[in-house]
Design a protein around this nucleic acid. Structure first.
Length: 270
DNA sequence: AAATTCTCCTGAAGGC
DNA sequence: TGCCTTCAGGAGAATT
């Protein structure tokens, strides 16, 4: 499931292969994604040059000279660059053809999105009110501390709220809280400044390390070259219910917090 | 404003 | 072997 490291891995994989190239064709095989894919896309993109592939939160921004294609991979989306005329398989919904190479969006669960804007994409309603990038200097313990005062939700839900900080999904929230020694269900407003410093550092460290490993592949995710991501083998608690805590040896617990499966060591995390 | 619940979808896993 | 049920999950929308 693409979180920030998977999206960034994808960006790095596709950018050098398609930046600076012009669109020769757009194929929409399935337009029923999270929102209908605009049918005007082929016309709007024809012969247009892709300047840059950027990322904001979990959105990929394909910046053309006259507008931006905003992509979200949802739960199960992935992008590959393939030779043109590669036969599509099931769930290969969209192709952007750039002459001798084809950017193909595959998304079995269709929670992803493809949007077009000719305005500043950062001012798009979906992106406008997002929190800071976790790997930027705008994200730190003080930020988490300030935003959490007076609030009662579980720190894990707080950390996964895109208005607080972007890109931290379920897997990395679990891992960061383990590394910081914070219990995922603890009320976010009752955590000290010092512990938030530690949490912010843990988030940065884990995301950086996951990006280095090419992301986490559990089922669907693939890097742009088709290889899986290798961070799964570094997961300390996620999906490890009943297994020993790598720190103290107690067994990892699992419970649902904010409708999301949460894994933690009740002894190391308070 | 903040918190919670609902919703979209498919494939995997489990039960019988 | 096969059919049915349950579940996971990003995040916007709707509701409380």
């Amino acid at each position: 499931m693409p979180e920030l490291p998977e999206v960034e891995t994808t960006r790095r994989g596709i950018a050098p292969l398609i930046e600076g190239r012009s669109v020769s064709a757009v194929v929409i095989r399935e337009s029923r994604l999270r929102w209908p894919v605009p049918g005007t896309l082929p016309k709007r993109l024809a012969r247009r040059k892709l300047r840059k592939v950027e990322r904001r939160a979990k959105y990929l921004l394909l910046r053309f000279t006259h507008g931006t294609l905003i992509l979200h991979l949802g739960m199960s989306g992935s992008l590959r660059v393939l030779p043109p005329n590669t036969p599509p398989s099931k769930h290969d919904h969209i192709d952007l053809v750039f002459g001798d190479r084809c950017l193909r969006l595959r998304d079995p669960r269709r929670f992803g999105a493809v949007l077009w804007t000719e305005e500043d994409p950062l001012q798009h309603p979906l992106l406008r009110s997002l929190g800071p990038e976790p790997l930027s200097s705008d994200f730190h313990g003080e930020h988490l501390y300030r935003l959490s005062r007076g609030r009662r939700i579980a720190v894990k839900s707080f950390l996964m709220d895109g208005h607080v900080v972007v890109g931290v999904g379920n897997i990395y929230a679990n891992e960061a809280l383990f590394q910081a020694g914070i219990h995922p269900a603890r009320a976010c407003g009752r955590i000290s400044r010092k512990r938030y410093d530690r949490l912010a550092e843990a988030v940065k460290e884990i995301l950086r390390s996951a990006i280095d490993q090419g992301g986490t592949t559990l089922q669907d995710f693939r890097q742009a070259d088709g290889n899986p991501g290798y961070f799964a083998r570094e997961l300390k608690v996620y999906g490890r219910e009943g297994q020993p805590c790598p720190h103290c040896g107690n067994s990892i617990h699992q419970r649902t917090i904010g409708q999301r499966s949460s894994y933690y060591c009740p002894r190391c995390q308070r």
